[in-house]
Design a protein around this nucleic acid. Sequence first.
DNA 1: CTAGAAATGCAAATGATTCGCAATAAGGAG
DNA 2: CTCCTTATTGCGAATCATTTGCATTTCTAG
Lengths: 144, 144
Amino acid sequence: MNLDNLLDKLKMNGYKITVQRKAILRALAENHNNLITVENLFEKSKEIYPKTNMSTVYRNLEILEKLKLVYKVLTENGMALYKLVCSDKHHHHIICKKCGKTEVIDFCPIDNLKQIIKNKKFILTDHKLELYGYCLDCKNSEDS
Amino acid sequence: MNLDNLLDKLKMNGYKITVQRKAILRALAENHNNLITVENLFEKSKEIYPKTNMSTVYRNLEILEKLKLVYKVLTENGMALYKLVCSDKHHHHIICKKCGKTEVIDFCPIDNLKQIIKNKKFILTDHKLELYGYCLDCKNSEDS
DNA sequence: CTAGAAATGCAAATGATTCGCAATAAGGAG
DNA sequence: CTCCTTATTGCGAATCATTTGCATTTCTAG
């Protein structure tokens, strides 16, 4: 999904297009393969529009998350990482533990699981599958 | 794993057995099927040994996590939930989104995934599979 | 029983995230 | 283009789970 599509989606949902909002989206778009921290996104947004404020970044991420335009993971210490969603099709990711690079995993084990869960006293509603590792770039750099 | 085993593991690793530590472990053991919040664990520990302190709970959870005696999940808002690990065998859970009850899922899709990841520029090291839903008790109670 | 190390309690610090509120900017109607 | 309404922003202060420093207490090996 490119920048214009994103802006359209926002407009369609009654959100105004502000300079800050565009900067944040562009910063996200320029990192669409990587999960980034809010702090980092804030820095990148400021490079595009220097007056962008941290609260604004948070508020926009909240909106983008609600519209499912952004994907959020929590690190082990509970900090949020974000990236733009790349496609509407259900999928998972493998995430580089060092640099946050992601690749799509076009496989979902949920059907196998549904079978198993049939016998449990549970109604399955959601699932979260996250794979972690190192991308080759990070693997090859010594200090991992 | 029962209380005595847990105490042994701690001793074996050079940790002392204190009243508070035993209270926290007993509280965890009494809830071994449910994920509980630290706050909640704190309350339950105090019922067993009233002088137990919140910091102590946090410090002990940290130790238990390091020894892999406890399993930790983060809620959507980044708050930690804990439960004792039940077995050494690799497994996953289905988690009730309302009450935190868990059931073991004795299936891991990682072999299928390894096959898929072979072609990616990634070294897989970890994975996280969490299933969410409602246990029948919660499903049946109206206010969900 | 004692010494030394580990653990605890308390209160204060941290740090990511949220919030209140006044000021500003967007964009539709005229 | 200008006005008006409403959303959005910036700022600083508040939140809140978690962590930490330090003095005190408790373990436990010897």
